[in-house]
Simulated scan of single mutants.
Amino acid sequence: MTISAGRLSHPAVRALVTALNSNDEQAFYDALTTGATMSDDGLDRDLRQWCDREIFATRGHLDVQSESDHGLSLVANYRNDTWGEMRTRWRFTVEDGKVSRFETGQA
């Protein structure tokens, strides 16, 4: 069963996932703190380069399957035009109502 982005329990995560699924680059970056960081499969990446390549240039989309840790951890089917669909995990750190870090990787 998929959880729609609008029904995710944590407001900062909800804003980020909604923007990602809408391919709304401005809203996505607005949902992040200045200096936000991320990692993919345990390796820190340049956030803007990674997001441009893995989300915005390739129409990335998250179909959330479950959430835990008060909405800060997700398991989702992630798809984009480069890699197709894969089961992924997402972990978010939130500061002052915005995402300051996210970690993703295959689940």
Score class of each variant (00 low, 15 high):
2 T>I: 06
2 T>E: 02
2 T>D: 00
3 I>W: 04
5 A>Q: 08
5 A>P: 13
6 G>D: 14
6 G>H: 12
8 L>T: 03
8 L>F: 05
9 S>G: 05
9 S>M: 08
9 S>F: 04
10 H>Q: 09
10 H>I: 02
10 H>L: 03
11 P>I: 05
12 A>N: 03
13 V>K: 04
15 A>F: 04
15 A>D: 10
15 A>R: 14
16 L>C: 10
16 L>F: 11
17 V>Y: 04
17 V>H: 06
18 T>A: 13
19 A>L: 07
19 A>K: 07
21 N>M: 08
21 N>C: 07
21 N>T: 03
21 N>R: 10
22 S>W: 11
22 S>K: 15
22 S>M: 13
23 N>S: 15
23 N>G: 14
25 E>H: 11
26 Q>C: 10
26 Q>E: 13
29 Y>V: 01
31 A>C: 11
31 A>H: 09
32 L>N: 01
33 T>Q: 15
33 T>G: 10
33 T>S: 10
33 T>M: 11
34 T>S: 15
35 G>I: 01
36 A>C: 14
37 T>I: 12
37 T>L: 14
38 M>L: 11
38 M>A: 13
38 M>S: 12
38 M>F: 03
39 S>R: 06
39 S>W: 02
39 S>H: 04
40 D>L: 05
40 D>Y: 10
40 D>R: 00
42 G>L: 02
43 L>G: 06
43 L>W: 07
43 L>P: 02
43 L>E: 12
46 D>G: 07
46 D>L: 04
47 L>K: 09
47 L>T: 08
47 L>H: 08
47 L>V: 11
47 L>W: 06
47 L>M: 11
48 R>P: 10
49 Q>T: 08
49 Q>H: 04
50 W>P: 01
50 W>H: 06
50 W>T: 01
51 C>R: 14
51 C>W: 09
51 C>A: 15
51 C>V: 15
52 D>R: 10
54 E>V: 09
54 E>L: 07
56 F>K: 11
57 A>E: 13
57 A>F: 09
60 G>K: 09
61 H>F: 11
67 E>Q: 14
69 D>M: 00
70 H>G: 09
72 L>N: 01
73 S>K: 00
73 S>Q: 00
75 V>C: 04
75 V>I: 07
76 A>M: 05
78 Y>V: 05
80 N>I: 13
80 N>H: 14
81 D>K: 15
83 W>N: 12
83 W>C: 10
83 W>Y: 13
84 G>M: 06
85 E>Y: 07
85 E>F: 07
85 E>V: 11
86 M>Y: 12
87 R>I: 03
88 T>A: 12
88 T>K: 13
89 R>M: 00
90 W>G: 00
90 W>M: 01
92 F>H: 08
95 E>F: 04
95 E>M: 08
96 D>Y: 07
96 D>L: 08
97 G>S: 05
97 G>I: 02
98 K>D: 00
98 K>F: 01
99 V>Q: 02
99 V>C: 02
100 S>M: 07
100 S>I: 08
102 F>C: 04
103 E>Q: 12
103 E>K: 07
103 E>T: 05
103 E>A: 11
104 T>A: 05
105 G>I: 01
105 G>M: 07
105 G>D: 01
107 A>G: 01
